[in-house]
């Protein structure tokens, strides 16, 4: 009797809980996100319409679209836009294909494959900014080991101006970024590959699929949703990743290796022009938002037309 009463109360209590309980559980997370992510977005939107320079705080006022105009009129803007597209597409291309290849190789275990994985995952555990500095040391025009090695091996006659020439410097930062980001794809694609059921692969083999055929006809279609998602995440993440450029070139020579996000950091921390920095940040957010929607629509449409 006592037990059943107890149960009844508990059931009632549970019902009453059900409406509000999940919200209580979610409250701390939502509060933190509101204060530290969404509030800054709104504040940025507000600040982007102000003349707001940290070193001139007596002179803060709304100036309409002046900050946005200033960004478009900036002489470096075109170059920075091109750099951003180059940075994202070339980095992504190599990170993805190298990562995919390595993941396929690592899927079947071999001696020391665990150790091997542990070692090639290391870049992910490192600070992008510091690794930027490390690569700067390697690519240094005069003191760098890369030019030294290439000279010694007879690959080049004169040192390559890796960091003092804008085009070489763009190549250098992208190489460093590929080094840094392949790990992400290896981990994610390996995780996805391990989710492919063996039965499907065996069935494909029985049907006479070779390795290449089963890769394209069975494995890739199976992990396609994961691939679409991680490529999207990656595009956003590479766009918002100024650390390596900051360590290697700080956007130099003469602003020629900035991408949008490293330019943003420069505006906020060095120029201390927060109005302009906010305008740039808001534009980046807008572009990424629109891109994401188009990306998701495009990949979904493709899937639907495949289904038909």
């Amino acid at each position: 009797m006592a037990a059943s009463v107890h149960k009844l109360v508990r059931k009632d209590g549970k019902k009453a809980q059900n409406i509000l309980a999940p919200l209580w559980f979610l409250l701390p997370a939502l509060i933190m996100v509101a204060i530290f992510i969404y509030y800054p977005v709104l504040a940025t939107a507000n600040m982007s319409f102000k003349n707001y320079k940290l070193f001139d705080q007596s002179n803060i006022f709304y100036n309409g679209f002046e900050n946005f105009r200033g960004i478009f009129k900036d002489l470096a803007f075109r170059r920075i836009l091109q750099n951003t597209v180059l940075w994202v597409t070339v980095s992504l291309f190599f990170q993805f294909f190298i990562g995919f290849g390595l993941a396929l190789y690592l899927k079947s275990k071999f001696k020391f494959s665990g150790l091997y994985q542990g070692i090639i995952f290391i870049p992910w555990a490192l600070s992008g900014f510091l690794m930027g500095l490390v690569w700067k040391w390697i690519f240094d025009d005069n003191l760098g080991v890369l030019n030294d090695l290439m000279l010694k091996l007879g690959l080049i006659e004169t040192p390559i101006p890796w960091l003092s020439n804008a085009n070489w410097a763009m190549a250098a930062v992208i190489i460093a970024n590929i080094w840094y980001g392949v790990t992400f794809f290896v981990i994610m694609i390996l995780a996805a590959l391990q989710g492919v059921p063996n039965e499907i692969l065996e069935a494909a083999e029985l049907d006479g699929c070779g390795k290449a055929k089963s890769l394209f006809l069975v494995i890739i279609p199976f992990i396609r949703p994961t691939l679409i998602l991680i490529i999207l995440l990656r595009i956003i993440w590479i766009t918002n990743f100024p650390d390596i450029i900051f360590g290697m070139t700080s956007g130099g020579p003469n602003q020629q290796t900035h991408i949008l996000s490293s330019w943003l950091v420069q505006k906020i921390t060095y120029d201390q022009d927060w109005g302009s920095g906010s305008a740039l940040g808001l534009m980046m957010l807008g572009v990424l938002f629109v891109f994401t929607i188009f990306y998701l629509l495009a990949t979904r449409l493709e899937k639907e037309s495949e289904g038909n």
Partner: peptide, 12 residues
Amino acid sequence: TQMIPGLIALAP
């Protein structure tokens, strides 16, 4: 939130 450049939060 995964779309928002974290850097814009610096000033606010």
